[in-house]
Design a protein around this nucleic acid. Structure first.
Lengths: 337, 337
DNA sequence: CTGAAAGCGCTTACAG
DNA sequence: CTGAAAGCGCTTACAG
């Protein structure tokens, strides 16, 4: 920085008022607090000087950083970025800025606490889908020990609703999608899920099992590594020992991998096998045939989470608890009948 | 926040030293500046109290926020998130935090300047691929008027290297990939690009044209809307009037859309038509056959950009200029011979 | 409606 | 090696 940027004092001096008046004129929308003429002059001078309030100083003085940290494990995965976009939309409206903080490996959560505290963020949005014990402790520490507003975004702690989360009813979605295949006349419906059993995957699985049970069908579950490259092997092995006519993938990418394997094995989609994905990502439009999928309003989930967080940060309301469920959709395309 | 968090004064008092000493003990690695025993005591007390330095106060005092803004147009598109991940990796190493700032519509760049200035970020990473005049002005204002370190990430200004950018040699990549298809014996090779001619797409196009010219082949270029849904129509219309045996999509998604259309028209891939995408996204592994593509080291581009930015922010070196080019790769998979 | 003054929690010459 | 003091750029009771 070559030249010093103008401060509130520069404005005050040039406008012939005190810095307190400048502060009031520029911040307070309530016109009672400062004479219109004064405000006008101040605003004019501020513009002439190109004055921009120093957010850091303001934050220090008010003890509000107007910053929110998003903690996520992998920005590039699935719909994380889409959720962040939803968050950004409402963050902008409420004048918060968003700091992206990668979730550390499981053993390093202590540093995370430390970082979050140092940053003095006003709130935390948590989007890590694998909730280990350490992570759960982290969340409770942030929330209960340090009283920092916290909302879980499209993730949750199993059997624990003490921290507010925004998601969809994954169990219901898993149930519906299974019913859908059953209605098509499918009987050998498999669920492809990941080895790591994220709380949200478990909900999907529960819904699947419930629907299968109700129809007196035996559930068959394939656990894949979740890695794009080794999914193929896991799924191939599964298909070798399981005859299936319906597939539900807990993620679109898993469903698509499976679909490709089946097509290469000579199966016709959807004649021989019906396939459902989960999440309705952009992938689903690029397959051939296009993938049927459960539509998750990811952007809205992000937006809603940020709204809830905002209300906690601003109104200092009691902590929200429980799960906020948004509506999902079942999108039928070419991979189902 | 219920309880006040401990400050440097709390530590000082309990340790029986001045706050200046605490500051030195905690910040300065150079042991000369503070007696080992003193430092030890301070560190111990700080830990006991759970003291975490207030980043905001430090930023104000040092005039360094240790925050960097990433300005991007669409976090969810292509490999933006992947680039951000690369950025985050080095940001963490250098103790910077990353604020995500959505690029405003073209007519609102003034607010952006204002926001950036208010935030007092130490540097800016710019990832918007469409560089309009207003945006170019914004960049120069940030860089030249306000002297804020700035690096373009996988984007550039056409015919202007006054602002440092990190990317790959897109013209060369476009050239190579075209040559590759020519080597296969393809003669009717089309380039599918977007209507909006981003600087980077133009480079790819230039490379394509150069290779076609050298081989005495006539370039055929299809301009699509770039939108997943309407791409189909644009491409179909193009294919109806153009007989092709080779396709290069400036983005994987465009190449894939085209591939699906051709397959549905009874074409065999790669027997009848060879296809190359650009970017080597995850999409390319999910198609059937798998898509050949130009591999862009997106994460490395982000990391490199952040490194360059760091050196500007810390060493106060003269502004970097010019383009830093990382190596790309040509990945041949099932859609080429 | 406006100003003087203290305070937010740090850092850093300056003295010793 | 350490401390007292001023300063970073704001906000906000308190007086008037």
């Amino acid at each position: 920085m070559s030249d010093r940027r103008p401060t509130i004092y520069d404005v005050a001096k040039k406008a012939g008022v005190s810095n307190a008046t400048v502060s009031r004129a520029l911040n307070n929308k309530l016109s009672e607090l400062v004479k219109p003429a004064t405000r006008k002059k101040v605003v004019k001078v501020a513009k002439e000087l190109g004055y921009k309030a120093n957010t850091l100083a303001k934050a220090l003085a008010t003890n509000k950083s107007t910053q929110v940290a998003i903690i996520c494990s992998d920005l590039a995965r699935g719909s994380v970025a889409e959720m962040v976009k939803g968050i950004l939309t409402v963050a902008q409206a409420y004048k918060y800025s968003i700091i992206i903080v990668p979730s550390p490996q499981d053993d390093k959560t202590e540093n995370l606490v430390s970082d979050i505290l140092s940053m003095r963020v006003d709130g935390v949005l948590y989007m890590v889908d694998e909730i280990t014990d350490k992570r759960e402790n982290f969340l409770k520490e942030i929330r209960d020990t340090y009283n920092i507003p916290l909302v879980l975004v499209n993730t949750c702690i199993q059997n624990d609703e003490s921290i507010c989360s925004v998601q969809i009813d994954y169990e219901q979605a898993g149930y519906e999608v299974t019913k859908e295949l059953i209605k098509e006349g499918r009987k050998k419906i498999a669920l492809l899920t990941t080895l790591k059993r994220y709380p949200i995957s478990i909900l999907k699985e529960n819904g699947y099992i419930k629907a299968m049970d109700e129809a007196n069908l035996t559930p068959r579950i394939c656990y894949t590594s979740g890695n794009l490259n080794s999914n193929y092997d896991d799924i191939t092995a599964f298909l070798n020992t399981n005859d299936v006519d319906g597939i539900i993938g807990v993620r679109d990418s898993i469903a698509i991998s499976c679909m490709n394997i089946m097509i290469n094995n000579g199966k016709k989609i959807p004649d021989d096998v019906s396939i459902f994905g989960f999440q309705n990502t952009r992938y689903s439009l690029l397959t051939n045939p296009e993938l049927s999928s459960v539509d998750i309003p990811v952007s809205e989930i992000g937006a809603k989470a940020m709204k809830v967080l905002t209300s906690e940060m601003e109104d200092e309301k009691p902590n929200h608890k429980g799960r906020i469920l948004l509506k999902h959709g079942i999108i039928k395309r070419g991979t189902t009948k």
